[in-house]
């Protein structure tokens, strides 16, 4: 198998400190270790194949923050805990330790993102990178 993480150009962050590519197994470990992970899905997740994968991930028990109009893909989906929130608001709240989260159980320690416009999610990540506490 080719290791695609080598020399990977990441287009979702700019600046002296940028995102790095990593292997799926490491991502899986990070999710496993997280106490309060949040799966953040954007409107582009509504494409059929991607939506099926997103649902499968959500059914592992990770709460879903459905941004844009992506919530449409998760309505009445059994085993999926999805709530709508605007991504710009979410990025703001994630930097606030006082935020109770989507379920009033506190803020999150890991977010997993899927299905956003690159240039838009770049800005949200920039806010998190610089101002999360």
């Amino acid at each position: 198998m080719v290791d695609v993480t080598k020399n990977l150009k990441v287009y979702t962050t700019y600046g002296p400190k940028t995102a790095k590519g990593t292997k799926p197994a490491i991502v899986a470990k990070m999710i496993e270790k997280a106490k309060r992970p949040l799966f953040v899905v954007g409107s582009e997740v509504l494409e059929e194949e991607l939506l099926a994968r997103a649902k499968a991930i959500a059914k592992k028990g990770i709460p879903v923050a459905a941004t844009g109009h992506s919530i449409k893909g998760f309505i009445d989906e059994e085993g999926v805990d999805a709530k709508y929130i605007n991504i710009h608001f979410l990025g703001t709240f994630l930097c606030d330790p006082k935020w109770g989260g989507l379920d009033d159980n506190g803020c999150y320690d890991l977010i997993i993102l899927l299905g956003h416009k690159k240039y838009y999610i770049n800005q949200v990540l920039s806010g998190l990178k610089n101002f999360q506490t």
Partner: peptide, 25 residues
Amino acid sequence: YNPVYTPMCDQCCYCTFGACDLTGN
């Protein structure tokens, strides 16, 4: 209404003191 900043490049290049890396505030 809280000002919410989402920087573009994380640096300030306004003067010859810099360029300064402001990442992480």
